[in-house]
Every structure is written in C-alpha cells, then in structure tokens.
C-alpha cells in the first residue's frame, strides 16, 4: 500500500475536522433516536483510503473521545454507544482493509467501505444497547429499520467520500506520496 504514515499533527488535524462534523451533527435533531447521518465517518474513510487503517483508527477514536468531552457526554450511555459503534466499525474496516485492500480488482471502493463501517457501527450499538440498557428482545425489532437507515446513510457518505477522494486526487495535494511508489 502506498499509504503515507501521517505525522501526529496531521492525525490531530483530521480528528479535529471529524470532531467539528460530529458536533454539528449532534446539534441537528433526529426524527428517530439512534439515527444520524454519520457524516463524520467520511473523514475516517478518506483517511483510510489515503493514509491507511492505523491513521483512520486514530482519527475515529479521537473523534469519539474528543467529541464526547466537548458535548459533555463522556462516559454516559450516549458515549458508550458511540464508542462501541466506532470501535466495531474501525475493527470491521480493518478486517476488510487487510483482506481486500484498496487497489486490487477485488477491493471495494468508498461505497463498500462505507457500508461495512455503517453496518458494524449499527450492529455494535444495537448489541451494546441490548446488553447494557434495554435487555429486552423487543429491541431487535428495531434492527431492520435502523439498519435500513444505516444503509441509506452509508450510500450518502460513501458517495461523499468518493467525491472528496476524486477531488483530492485531481488537486494533487501536497501530502500525496504515491509518486515513485510501487
């Protein structure tokens, strides 16, 4: 993989960007509890595609931690759900990244990765919610609806990631390192 190892400052920069989106999103009321677009994950995906899984994991982890500190939800149920979702989606992304990579014929593009992240996120949240907060099996009835929302928003954020990646590639931004690689 030609992914460049980021400096700590750059990871912090990406995480800060994700935190801003995270907080803006938290301030938008949602028609259904537990459903939000998850656009902050676009930053994670862009970092995954351009800088590899480790950088993406850092950005996602920092976003959840700093976001919860700024929103005042650190260690509350909201944070538990958000953190478990982020951890699960980072692990799932890592699995697919290791197994399928980015540049092979069989590698998924932004849409595939967004779907993997969104499903892992929602599944983990449902499981943690069921385990810790609502140990009632009726909760699973919500699963199809919530996962439908996940899927729809994954298409949106996959598309946004693709747009961003194309834009960044065309601009040939300074931190690209693929020249001379391979």
């Amino acid at each position: 993989m030609t992914a460049m190892r980021l400096k700590d400052q750059q990871i912090a920069g990406f995480a800060a960007l994700a935190v801003v989106i995270h907080i803006l999103e938290a301030s938008v009321p949602s028609p259904l509890p537990g459903v939000k677009p998850g656009l902050a994950n676009v930053v994670t995906l862009v970092v995954l595609f351009r800088h590899g899984w480790i950088a993406a994991a850092w950005v996602a982890g920092l976003r959840v931690l700093v976001g919860s500190l700024l929103l005042g939800s650190f260690m509350t149920p909201t944070f538990m759900l958000s953190a478990s979702g982020a951890i699960a989606s980072v692990i799932a992304l890592g699995g697919v990244y290791r197994a399928l990579g980015l540049q092979h014929a069989w590698s998924p593009g932004p849409l595939g990765y967004a779907l993997v992240a969104a499903w892992a996120h929602m599944a983990a949240q449902l499981f943690v919610a069921w385990l810790l907060f609502i140990p009632h099996d009726g909760l699973w009835r919500l699963a199809p609806v919530l996962l439908t929302a996940s899927t729809v928003f994954a298409v949106v954020s996959g598309w946004a990631t693709w747009k961003l990646l194309s834009w960044l590639a065309e601009r040939g931004s300074a931190d690209r390192v693929d020249e001379g690689a391979c």
Partner: peptide, 28 residues
C-alpha cells in the same frame, strides 16, 4: 498517479456488498 488515486465509486465488490446488505435487510 492521478489515475491510481482516482477511486471509482462503484466497483463490482461494492455492488456485491450493496446487494448483500439489501438481501440481509430483507431477511431481517
């Protein structure tokens, strides 16, 4: 290098994953 970094939105693995997701939703 431009070409290498230009990621296509829909490659066949994406379609396979999307189809799997839709089918899983149906089952759910």
């Amino acid at each position: 290098s431009r070409k290498r970094w230009f990621v296509r939105f829909l490659k066949w693995p994406d379609l396979v994953m999307a189809a799997t997701a839709v089918m899983a939703l149906g089952v759910l």
